[in-house]
């Protein structure tokens, strides 16, 4: 039983890892929920940070760089 529990935990961690990589929008509510449960501290900050979706910025994130000879900014 202990072995099965450990394996299930490891498997859940790996699935979460890939969900975070492939679809961070799906895991963001999980992190935010986790942050609400945790007391203030480094772990909570980490959860809050992961709960925020990345903001697109910088060259290459906008449309038309190539069409206008790089003059889109």
């Amino acid at each position: 039983m202990v072995q099965v529990s450990v394996v299930c935990l490891v498997l859940a961690f790996c699935l979460l890892y890939w969900l975070q990589r492939l679809a961070p929008a799906l895991t963001a509510p999980l992190w935010r929920g986790g942050a609400r449960l945790l007391p203030a501290g480094a772990w909570r900050e980490q959860c809050e940070q992961r709960g925020r979706l990345p903001v697109k910025s910088g060259c290459g994130q906008c449309n038309g760089c190539d069409r206008t000879g790089g003059g889109c900014h």
């Binding site: 060259c59 290459g60 760089c65 190539d66 000879g69 790089g70 003059g71 889109c72 900014h73």
Partner: peptide
């Protein structure tokens, strides 16, 4: 006078 996207930055 930029001629490529990196120079434009």
């Amino acid at each position: 006078t930029a001629t490529s996207p990196d120079e434009a930055v």
